[in-house]
């Protein structure tokens, strides 16, 4: 039996989506612009894309690059960020470098990278890697810096070496912050995935989108936007599930601490 409040909470996202589509539909009907299809037209185009083998291969290729880029970025950035957070020397060395790279749109580096590495998977994966790395490094850095000194002292008293403390105390203690960075990284991976395919058109979800744009197939363009958006929501939901499981300990199960002394 679901309470009315619980029902409202569950229905809210669905209602928001329906509301957005309704506004889109109304705006499109009012504007009567060829390049702005109605929501219904766009949704109708989705099965055609997902039913087409070629398109599916493209989308899966995109996701594969994204997974590889994201995976490499996370496995490099977390150790680097943690080291920076615990060592002044490492932080002093990498901080200026990262500060220079952070504000540069990674897509802006793409033409140069394409000159070096071609238009293939390596270039696109590298751009995704760059996009994901910085927020993950930054959050790992902040998380590691915030680890309570006395927690490390407690570990040292138990006989943990500095390396063991980094892996067995700093890493788990900073995990909530690291995963916040990874979540931002995941969204950025999706964005850089599409932009990289916009610049180096060869395959992928971005390729379908921009080819359709060139050919004036606006219903396909908008259908792809919906598909990419849906992919983002699904990935985020999966990630959130994993995150909640990993850092269960950092969120209270009870509103109030048990009274006991």
């Amino acid at each position: 039996m679901i309470s009315p409040a619980g029902l409202a909470r569950r229905a809210a996202p669905v209602l928001a989506c329906i509301g957005l589509l309704a506004m889109w539909q109304a705006a499109s009907l009012a504007l009567k612009n060829d390049s702005f299809p109605t929501a219904i037209e766009a949704i109708r185009a989705i099965p055609d894309i997902l039913g087409d083998k070629e398109s599916l291969i493209n989308i899966l290729a995109s996701l594969r690059r994204m997974a590889i880029g994201f995976g490499i970025a996370v496995s490099v950035s977390i150790p680097l960020g943690l080291l920076m957070g615990r060592s002044r020397a490492v932080a002093a060395f990498f901080n200026p470098l990262l500060m220079v790279i952070y504000p540069v749109p990674k897509a802006a580096l793409m033409p140069i990278i394409m000159l070096w590495l071609g238009v293939g998977d390596v270039t696109k994966t590298l751009v995704i890697f760059l996009g994901v790395s910085l927020p993950v490094i930054y959050h790992s850095f902040e998380g590691a810096k915030a680890v309570e000194e006395k927690m490390l002292w407690s570990g040292a008293a138990m006989g943990l070496s500095p390396a063991q403390r980094l892996v067995r105390i700093v890493l788990p203690a900073a995990l909530p912050e690291i995963l916040t960075g990874c979540r931002t990284g995941l969204v950025l991976a999706l964005i850089t995935m599409i932009t990289s395919e916009m610049i180096a058109r060869q395959s992928g979800a971005g390729n379908i989108l921009f080819n359709a744009l060139d050919m004036g197939q606006y219903d396909t363009v908008f259908a792809m936007i919906i598909i990419v958006g849906a992919m983002g929501i699904c990935l985020d939901a999966i990630f959130e599930r994993v995150r909640a499981r990993l850092v269960r300990w950092s969120e209270p199960q009870f509103d109030m601490p048990l009274s006991f002394s």
């Binding site: 309570e148 006395k150 927690m151 002292w153 407690s154 008293a157 105390i169 788990p172 203690a173 995990l175 850092v247 300990w249 950092s250």
Partner: peptide, 13 residues
């Protein structure tokens, strides 16, 4: 030498 701190410093995970 085993420390006990005011801040508890437990491993929260």
């Amino acid at each position: 030498r085993g420390p006990v701190f005011q801040e508890f410093a437990l491993f929260p995970w």
